[in-house]
Amino acid sequence: MADGYRSLSIGEIRGLEAAGCRSNSWESVFVKDPFNAERIQNVTFSGIVRLGFFNGTARERCGLPLLHGIRNAHIHNCTISDNVTITDITGFIANYDIGEGVVIRNCGHISTEGRTSFGNGTRVAVLNETGGREVPIWDRLTSHMAYIITLYRHRPVAIEVIEKFIADYTESVKSDRGEIGAGSYIAGCGTIKNVKIGYGAVIEDVSRLAEGSVNSSFKDPVYIGNDVIMDHFIICSGSRVNDAAVIDKCFIGQGCTLSKQYSAENSLFFSNCGGYHGEACSIFAGPYTVTHHKSTLLIAGIFSFMNAGSGSNQSNHMYKLGPIHQGIMERGSKTTSDSYVLWPSRIGPFT
């Protein structure tokens, strides 16, 4: 077979079966030399599966050695590169290309289901909670581009050109196979569905990741930690989401931290933002927007270089008309504890 893979020999098939492995079609399992069947135990194969060689040892961060290989798993329609470690998968791994040196252990379901754009093209109802200023997120979104899409609605031709550009990119990345980049570490996760994972990412003990892109890199890896739920998202290099944060329809730029039960939906976070304990809804968080306290709600506003005091709140409702209003806090603003702002408002810089 092309790309250095070959079919299993009769002896290798018998060795795998003796180690508790099963397949309805061993003809659809391909391997790369030097193949070591002893590193594969109690594995069910289905679909077309390509296996690299396994001849080394990975290590947990505590120093615990883990032999490269696959044990106690169901692998469906995957390409697994060299020296990968996959152990104790209670559900299955399906329709993924897994890079060299990846460690996946003690997980539930990791799968790609149908054609997906991995979060690209998701329309985020930023600033106006009822819609009308939606920003389609994509891997290369910048704050400048998002600002134009959000606020320059009086320039419909410009908006149309930008959104066409994003739509073309979204179509180009659609696939029925996910990717897990080389050197990534995934452990103790519940469900990962339709998620593209970049190089060196660390994802551990999450509850659910769905329809998203983890744009990690070796130089600045992404960390997603315990009990996190993320749907329809893109997260960029150097960012951290952990401690039971709940994220839906959000773009998370470089160097951001969302943690300590933070909740965010329909929001954009650009570089070096921090969100802890509180809630964000339909916000445009420019660089260095920080909220660190419980009972703090940021809603339907534009912020940057901003520090939200404890209990800060804004209201975008107008009696029976619903959440139709919005506001702008220009850069460098600071809200006091238990402050309340009724949108529409505009607050000047360094206020």
Rank of each mutant, 00 (worst) to 15 (best):
E265Y: 11
I324L: 11
I93P: 02
R346V: 14
A167W: 04
L151S: 06
Y288G: 00
E279L: 08
G332Q: 09
R105H: 04
M1L: 12
E38C: 05
E134H: 05
G11C: 05
A285M: 08
L66N: 09
S263E: 15
S339V: 08
V290K: 14
I192A: 01
A182L: 07
M318W: 12
S333P: 00
F165P: 00
D33N: 13
G253R: 02
V43Q: 11
E179R: 15
L298R: 00
L16C: 09
G198T: 13
T87P: 00
S9K: 13
G212I: 05
W26G: 05
G274D: 06
G188N: 04
A210E: 14
M1D: 10
V157F: 10
P156C: 09
V195G: 03
R240M: 11
A182R: 14
D243L: 13
K294F: 12
L209N: 05
I186P: 03
N77W: 00
D82M: 03
S217H: 08
D231C: 08
M1P: 12
R61L: 15
L268A: 07
G301R: 03
F284I: 11
V246R: 11
V103A: 01
H74C: 09
P156M: 09
L268Y: 03
E100M: 08
K219T: 13
I186G: 01
S239T: 13
M230V: 11
G91V: 00
I186F: 02
L8E: 03
L258N: 04
G183H: 04
T150R: 09
S111K: 13
H74Y: 04
E38Q: 15
K32I: 09
I252V: 15
